[in-house]
């Protein structure tokens, strides 16, 4: 699924939240988002957003061997990413109150 511009923004915030709670990889992020209720989210939907977050220095990525099969790209949040997430969380909370 290719998300709309607005959904993309929301998804980016959610991805940041997932990564900020623990270092993780693409497939796990998509699984987590499905648990949050985004039904049609695959790893392919998440990947361009991860690239964008990485370009904007909000997250960093690193390849590591996984226990079974192919290598995995693990993402972790940067200090800038943390600041940004807290900011968007505040906006999120205030918009819920409205």
């Amino acid at each position: 699924m290719i998300p709309s511009q607005m959904l993309k923004g929301i998804l980016e915030g959610c991805i940041l939240k997932v990564i900020s709670s623990k270092e993780t990889y693409g497939y796990e992020i998509s699984q987590q988002l499905q648990k949050y209720g985004f039904s049609d989210i695959s790893e392919g939907t998440v990947y361009p957003l991860l690239l964008r977050l990485e370009k904007n220095n909000l997250i960093t990525a690193e390849y590591r061997e996984s226990a079974l099969g192919p290598k995995r790209k693990y993402f972790s949040i940067t200090p800038t990413g943390k600041k940004n997430w807290r900011h968007s969380e505040r906006i999120g909370k205030s918009s819920i109150m409205l």
Partner: peptide, 25 residues
């Protein structure tokens, strides 16, 4: 490649992974 290979291990194909619209992706 790593994404598709992981998907293959899970028994999924590239279409499930990306959705059919490769150009938009």
């Amino acid at each position: 490649l790593q994404m598709v290979l992981s998907a293959q291990e899970r028994g999924e194909d590239i279409k499930t992974l990306i959705g059919g619209d490769y150009k938009s992706f």
